[in-house]
Computed example of a mutant assay.
Amino acid sequence: MQYSVEPGLYAIGQPDAESDVFVTANYKLSFDILRKSLKGFNAWILVLDTKSINVWCAAGKGTFGTDELVRRINEVQLHKVVHHRKIILPQLGAVGINAKAVQKQTDFKVYFGPVYAKDIPEYVNAGYKKNDKMRLVKFTMLDRLILTPMEINPAMKRFPIFALIVLLIFGLQPSGILFKDALSGGIPFLLLGLMSILSGAFITPVLLPFIPFRSFAVKGWITGIISTYIMMKTTNLDILPAVSSYIFFPVASSYIALQFTGSTTFTNMSGVRRELKVGLPIYLVFTVLSVMLLLVYKLFQWKVL
């Protein structure tokens, strides 16, 4: 996963002391896209150390930030490389940069360029002015669909642990663990688990703007409760496992959907923090309640209660 570029100053073409300076992250894909967009230009690229994270995410995490930009400008002695005092940053990095502080500490004035690197030639030719198209982030259904494997993959990596817990709970008997009971009782829960991953990591992102409410957690819960209801129509669970399912799987879908905030234009860092502050305690309480109901169900099976 070392998909990174060494931080520092790079030349595109044959730049001189009057050439533009563009700033990017040291995530190799970000660097390559910028380099490709500057084909035919004579320019400098200043690469910040964002720990191999793209500009947008790094700006939110603070690695594409004021301190790193100032440090890198001073380290490469940019004032000796160019005569002008202008640096051009991607618009999506603005959240992490205090332009006034950068200018005060380095004497370089920060300009925020277009959202997409492919628009840089048009931006430069227009006298470093952006039109509305250059300020707009597109996030179509196809864009969201392309990102869903990145959400499904980590969820599926955790699924074997969930499956093991479920099979242990349903297979556990006073005489030991019975494989037949584990499968007959656990398979509906495993299918519900797969459905919650599908609803949280695929359905919610794809249908994001069409699902009511702004909160990702609520959107994920809505798709989760609907998918759980549909799946429950195909199963024949006893009352306690059914209630446990309606409690757990919608919040599982909600939690998975909340992970998509790192890939979307629909929210910001403060919004994510608010959702986590409210959502995490609810996820914990509902999970514990769901497990307790299953344990009570097992005790009834064993005729302890």
Rank of each mutant, 00 (worst) to 15 (best):
E18Q: 10
C57D: 15
F41Y: 12
K130E: 04
K36G: 12
N98P: 03
Y123D: 05
S215A: 05
E75A: 09
M1Y: 06
Y297P: 12
L280I: 15
M232S: 09
R71V: 08
I53K: 13
L276H: 02
P281D: 03
Q173M: 15
I187Q: 03
G96C: 01
S184M: 04
L289P: 12
A99P: 06
W302N: 13
L48T: 03
F286T: 15
K303H: 11
Q173Y: 10
A201Q: 06
E151I: 12
I165P: 14
Y246G: 14
Q2C: 11
Q2Y: 11
W56D: 14
Y10S: 08
S245F: 00
L240R: 10
W302P: 10
Q259E: 10
G176L: 00
N98G: 10
G13R: 00
L69V: 07
S196W: 00
I152Y: 02
E122A: 15
K180R: 07
E18L: 07
I177M: 07
R144W: 01
R158D: 15
Y123A: 07
Y255F: 15
I211E: 13
I53P: 09
I120S: 13
W44M: 05
K277L: 11
H84P: 07
Y283V: 14
D16Q: 03
K233P: 11
L145E: 04
I120F: 02
H79C: 07
S270R: 06
V70H: 08
K180P: 13
L145F: 05
K133D: 11
N98K: 06
L142V: 03
L183A: 04
V291I: 12
L299M: 14
G200T: 04
A163L: 04
S19T: 02
G200D: 01
M195H: 00
F22Q: 12
V272T: 06
T223L: 01
G176Y: 01
T261Q: 10
E75M: 12
E75I: 06
T204S: 06
L34D: 14
V304I: 15
R135C: 05
D143C: 03
A99R: 08
G8A: 07
M269F: 10
L191S: 02
V21C: 04
A217M: 12
S290Q: 04
K180Y: 10
S184R: 09
T204K: 05
A201E: 09
I33V: 11
D49V: 02
S244G: 13
F286Q: 03
S37C: 02
E68K: 11
I12D: 08
R214P: 14
K118Q: 14
G271M: 05
A43E: 10
L136N: 08
A117L: 03
I12E: 06
M232H: 11
V288H: 03
A43R: 02
E151R: 08
D67A: 14
G185F: 01
S245Q: 12
Q173T: 09
P15Q: 01
R71F: 13
G193H: 00
Y283F: 14
A182L: 00
F108H: 05
R144H: 02
S215C: 07
R72V: 05
A99C: 11
N74Q: 14
Q173C: 08
T66H: 05
G40C: 06
K109D: 12
L192R: 00
H83D: 08
G96K: 00
Y297Q: 14
L34Q: 11
N268S: 07
D16G: 12
